[in-house]
């Protein structure tokens, strides 16, 4: 119980929960580092045009004179091409910047849509219970037990690869995770007395769901949405890697890695997998670390310190 601490204080210190969260977040070094990288990456993606202008290289042009060795092999990182060139003599850095645009757009867009759908369905299923819950809950189970990649393959083979299809597939297979979490939370929140209190005051279901329940879901919504972004990015990259995502020659991280893997060209040009691979890895890592940091900052009681009150003695 920490409540009495504020009672004894004569001056009312209004500690806003936002401010507290921010303060805790800023104290988390790993989280801060992850956030910085994400912001840098966003700047890199937004500034892809600037990168293009600065290097003077287009993302699509094949620099056969400067970008390829006399034997037709790609050039390694150097002054002319900071991250080297690919098998066709294109500038890897510029393509990475445009690829970041694609990856981030797809990852963020798909997560937001999936989160919206998942939260809505989770809320309805959890709050109303009964048949609504049975139908929606079972639907979630069903979607979760569908083999994701295989069905994506089938869809792509029919409709052909495209950005919209990628987003749709990611959304379709990822809303269930957050939907389940929200449903579970709502079921327990629904039975809490404060919801009963609102009901006894005459509040309607919509009012209860939005005013009473939704604010209590902010932590899982923020955390799960953040953690869905790297999954979306990886999924898109995987699709592109299998040749089913972004249509070449449009730059995408997965596509770049796929081109590096075909003909095993990466065995002689390490930068073709190490650089996009590392950026992809650090991106997903950053989003995951940020998600963890957000969880810790938003809900400090929910972490291991809680159970046995174990805190490393400082």
């Amino acid at each position: 119980m920490t409540a009495p601490a504020t009672d004894s204080a004569p001056a009312v210190v209004q500690r806003g929960s936002f401010e507290l969260t921010l303060r805790r977040l800023l104290r988390d070094k790993a989280g801060l580092l992850a956030l910085s990288f994400i912001l840098l990456l966003v700047a890199f993606a937004l500034g892809a045009g600037v990168v293009e202008a600065w290097t003077g290289h287009s993302a699509f042009e094949q620099y056969r004179d400067t970008g390829l060795t006399p034997t037709g092999m790609p050039v390694g990182p150097g002054a002319e091409f900071l991250f080297g060139t690919d098998g066709l003599g294109r500038d890897v850095m510029v393509r990475l910047a445009y690829g970041a645009r694609t990856s981030l757009t797809i990852g963020v867009l798909a997560s937001l849509i999936a989160s919206f759908i998942g939260v809505s369905i989770g809320l309805v299923a959890g709050y109303f219970g009964g048949w609504a819950d049975i139908v929606l809950g079972r639907t979630m189970d069903l979607v979760m037990s569908i083999p994701v990649l295989l069905c994506a393959l089938a869809l792509v083979s029919v409709f052909g690869p495209s950005v919209i299809l990628s987003v749709a597939v990611i959304v379709f297979f990822s809303w269930t995770t957050i939907g389940r979490v929200i449903r579970g939370q709502v079921i327990s929140l629904r039975q809490r007395d404060f919801v009963q209190a609102s009901r006894s005051l005459g509040a309607g279901p919509v009012s209860i769901m939005i005013i009473d329940i939704l604010p209590n879901l902010s932590v899982p919504i923020i955390v799960y949405t953040t953690m869905m972004i790297p999954n979306g990015i990886v999924f898109e990259a995987t699709l592109s890697f299998l040749g089913l995502g972004i249509v070449p020659p449009a730059p995408s991280w997965g596509g770049m890695l796929a081109e590096a893997a075909s003909n095993s060209i990466y065995l002689v040009a390490w930068w073709l997998i190490m650089i996009p691979g590392a950026i992809l890895l650090i991106t997903t890592l950053s989003f995951n670390i940020l998600g963890d940091a957000l969880r810790d900052a938003l809900d400090p009681s929910g972490r291991p310190t809680r159970k046995r009150r174990k805190v490393s003695k400082s």
Binding site: T238, L257, A261, W270, I273, M274, G277, T284, N288, D292
Partner: peptide, 18 residues
């Protein structure tokens, strides 16, 4: 855990091969 959940399978495979 963090590295594991963040590692895209195909990147890991290619890195291991290399």
């Amino acid at each position: 855990i963090l590295v594991g959940v963040s590692f895209p399978t195909f990147v890991l495979g290619m890195a291991l091969l290399y």
